[in-house]
Simulated scan of single mutants.
Amino acid sequence: MTNHEELLKLFYCILKKMKKEWSTQLQGINYSQYLILRILNRSGPQKAAQLAEVTQMTPGAITSATDKLVAEGYAERKGDKEDRRVVFLEITDKGKEFVESMAEEYNKVTMKFFQGLPDEDIQHLIRIYNKIWDNLEQ
């Protein structure tokens, strides 16, 4: 196995495990649904196409995820006043409370991933993550 193959394998395995850990902390929704709520809480009402682009999910997956959020009362669909064909997803007060209550727990779980790493390794990760971010921004 080449270094690049090993890197990709580890990256996907770690990402999958991280999503699983985050999902175990969420109460009745999955990580993708939580991500949608965080986006709505931070950015305001969004069209499904906007959410699909930001989350890198398919439109069908967005519809499925948002149906559950609406059913649970975390979000609601609202039509555009000027164009009734346009529908926005908006976070509800219940959704805002949920996101805010989970933020600290989410951060605790995330910090657990880096537990035991020496400061030098943390600095290397910060440098690496910044480089990855730069690559994604180009």
Rank of each mutant, 00 (worst) to 15 (best):
Q33Y: 12
Q33W: 11
Y34F: 13
Y34E: 02
L35C: 10
I36P: 07
I36E: 12
I39C: 02
I39V: 04
I39N: 02
L40P: 08
L40W: 10
L40E: 03
L40T: 00
N41R: 09
N41F: 14
N41M: 03
R42S: 06
S43K: 06
G44I: 00
G44D: 09
K47M: 06
A48G: 12
A49G: 11
Q50Y: 00
L51K: 00
L51N: 01
A52Y: 00
E53R: 12
V54T: 14
T55N: 06
Q56T: 05
T58F: 00
T58Q: 07
T58L: 03
P59I: 04
G60K: 10
A61G: 11
I62Y: 00
T63G: 06
S64L: 03
A65N: 14
T66H: 05
D67P: 05
D67T: 07
D67M: 07
K68G: 09
K68Y: 07
K68P: 09
L69A: 08
L69T: 05
A71Q: 03
A71L: 04
G73D: 11
Y74L: 07
E76P: 02
R77Q: 13
R77H: 13
K78R: 13
G79F: 06
G79P: 02
E82A: 07
E82T: 10
D83V: 13
D83F: 13
R84E: 07
R85L: 14
V87S: 08
F88L: 07
F88Y: 15
L89D: 01
L89G: 02
E90S: 12
E90I: 07
T92I: 04
T92V: 04
T92C: 15
D93V: 06
D93G: 05
D93N: 14
K94C: 08
K94W: 08
K94T: 11
K94Y: 15
K96L: 14
F98A: 03
F98Y: 15
V99E: 02
S101A: 11
M102E: 04
E104P: 00
E105Y: 01
Y106F: 11
V109C: 15
K112P: 02
F114R: 09
F114S: 09
Q115T: 11
Q115S: 11
G116D: 07
G116S: 10
G116Y: 05
G116K: 14
L117F: 12
P118M: 06
P118A: 08
P118C: 09
D119F: 15
D119V: 12
E120Q: 14
E120C: 09
E120Y: 12
D121I: 12
I122S: 03
